[in-house]
Design a binder for these strands. Sequence first.
DNA 1: CGCCGACTTGACACCAATCAAGATAAGTGG
DNA 2: CCACTTATCTTGATTGGTGTCAAGTCGGCG
Lengths: 257, 257
Amino acid sequence: MDGWPEIRARSFEGTADQPRTIANLLSRKEQEQIRRISSVLDCSRGDIVFAEGDEARFVHFVDGGVIRISRCADNGQRQILAFRVPGDLFGLPDAGRYVNSAEAVCAARIYRLAWHRMQQMMREDPQLQLNLLMKVVYDFRQAQARIMTLGQQNTCQRLASFLLDFARVPEFFDEKRALLNLPVNRFDLADYLGTAPESAARAFARLESQGLIRRITSRTIEILDIAGLQLLQRGPRRGHSGGIAEEKRSPLQEQFG
Amino acid sequence: MDGWPEIRARSFEGTADQPRTIANLLSRKEQEQIRRISSVLDCSRGDIVFAEGDEARFVHFVDGGVIRISRCADNGQRQILAFRVPGDLFGLPDAGRYVNSAEAVCAARIYRLAWHRMQQMMREDPQLQLNLLMKVVYDFRQAQARIMTLGQQNTCQRLASFLLDFARVPEFFDEKRALLNLPVNRFDLADYLGTAPESAARAFARLESQGLIRRITSRTIEILDIAGLQLLQRGPRRGHSGGIAEEKRSPLQEQFG
DNA sequence: CGCCGACTTGACACCAATCAAGATAAGTGG
DNA sequence: CCACTTATCTTGATTGGTGTCAAGTCGGCG
């Protein structure tokens, strides 16, 4: 866990067909380059990396752990915009300020480097800049995926999407035992899904009653049927059978009918 | 309306405190530079600029009109991710493909240029690339703003946000008469807000009954109370009085109590 | 053992999706 | 210009989904 964050070819909340690719990686030379002017920051659970409105002088990379990016709405409600896992970039300044807050969900190590030096480096090395651009574009795609989720899916489907996203991160998913270890509590989860914590709990109960998952503890979930979760996620928002082909429902019927 | 799109200092769906700034503009020299290798594309209402999954060889700028960026969910439901107005960039390739569809909402003129040439230019001119980066970051912020809207607001609030966003674009808002001319029909609006068209209509009815707007036609809205719309937008998702300070409710009470 | 926080479940009211039907506007052809 | 068709928009009725308050359960920790 020392040295420049290894930017792994894995993806949280990527589409299945669009995993994080080489386009998002930095070359070894570039890593060295950046490493020289960056500093390590070790966070423990709950630490605030920066708060929205703060003067923004650094850009950040995650090396280990999970960082939650959130923003407070005018009514005081918090919305978690994203969870960032190792390899992710966050904290781009906007007009010299951070527009979001960043806190450590669990113990985390991040690298940060002065934004003005980063800019300088990018001017000197267009290829590096292009890589950074690709990374921002990738995050942009993630945000669009969340718009799809929040705009079209009900609570259960959002939860299914969340679980499937996290199941793609080896750090949290033990594929052999099919055990998913969530690094977030119900409040964070609810603020991420855009629901109340009670609704999140109910969604868990529902997925369990449908035989898709099993709750070991509130933070440890056994994934019983990935295909079923995907089917749920892709299904209609409301349970009426119109709008979805018959053959799309049958595999689920086979397993639990 | 000829020549390179004038990138105006206006903003659709920007936060009030973060209007589109000089950071998003290209210098005259850069405009010339890009103009040389770009081609004009005139679209009429309903024209498809590109469809999701298409091979992506061009990047696009809006010169006039409105383009809707949409994606089809697995269940067949369409989600409109954004409306792009003059000055906006869209259609960045992802792994050589477009991930979204782009169609003309009304007659529109767009400029497009080959992505590989754009890349080449950016490598040669880091400043240009940095400007493009800022533009993508800006779009990223817009996407985050939509996550906030979709995650936290009910249908009426979303509609209020939509109206307020469009009211900031001079092309659609006659400030003297307080008339807002929507370029989209109820279906597009519903797919943008993540609701059913009926819900969108009901939301209009509700805002009207609260004296915030008045429907002239289905596409022409008179804005009666901008402050009231903002207040609604910032209020709690559900009408229970808990969680919001008393003084925040009183101005609304004064007007319609 | 008792406390405390996180989580879960129940009850209820409200919101919103859906289906259905009516109303309005926009084309279209005579 | 008018009747007709069509698309779009609106409203009503119904049902499922979800936020909210309240109470209960579970697990950790002193």
